[in-house]
Design a protein around this nucleic acid. Structure first.
Lengths: 102, 102
DNA sequence: AAAACACATTGACAAACTTCTATATGACGC
DNA sequence: GCGTCATATAGAAGTTTGTCAATGTGTTTT
């Protein structure tokens, strides 16, 4: 996966308000109005954050009449974890052998 | 762990250049000059990104004479993964029972 | 059809971030 | 000590992000 896409995914976790929202969704689906009640932001700001979370694939939105219900995407989380896993250094090398013409 | 700290951790993965750096470190330790050679940025910019990566705990710096050697912190990565894990929704509820006075 | 409601979009502004040039720090070799 | 090399820091410019008030869109209710 290319870095641009990875950056978009992890932007989901870079803002305190978004982390708060994710914490709220941890126990299951919630509608936007319900999330809004527990936060100190305006409705357009919430809408902005939900878009970022959905674009990152971390949250899924489901429309039901005039309500939007949001929930964590476990697949999205898994994908993010795979990205992290990808950076693990398995060479587990003893330090001190890296580079530079000494 | 509080959200402010989590946000700092994940900022490490929000920039394409930093992701590129992490990709380079994937195969083991490298010194700064070595990383710089493979990137299209100036030395101060690299220094800036390395600081963000180190502050996030994702990269470890080791000074040896006038050289700085950087490597992935597997512990840091693990911590990040634990944060993601924390958001997983294990209620795995059937959708449609969430909220809102219908 | 009109009013009310839930949410999204637009546009403006401030704060934060990325990048650069210039300069400082600290280590090495002469 | 002096010049050189590797890296860090400071300060400035441009870009992106977070936030809000105002407005638009689509749905339900009366």
């Amino acid at each position: 996966m290319d870095n641009k896409k990875v950056a978009v995914i992890f932007k989901a976790f870079c803002d305190e308000n978004r982390l708060h929202i994710l914490g709220l969704l941890r126990n299951g689906e919630r509608c936007a109005c319900n999330i809004l009640e527990e936060m100190q932001i305006t409705q357009p700001t919430l809408s902005h954050h939900m878009k970022i979370l959905c674009d990152a694939g971390i949250v899924i939105g489901r429309k039901e009449g005039k309500w939007m219900h949001y929930s964590i995407s476990n697949e999205g989380l898994k994908e993010a974890m795979v990205c992290l896993e990808h950076f693990r250094n398995d060479s587990e090398c003893e330090s001190g052998k890296s580079c530079c013409k000494k």
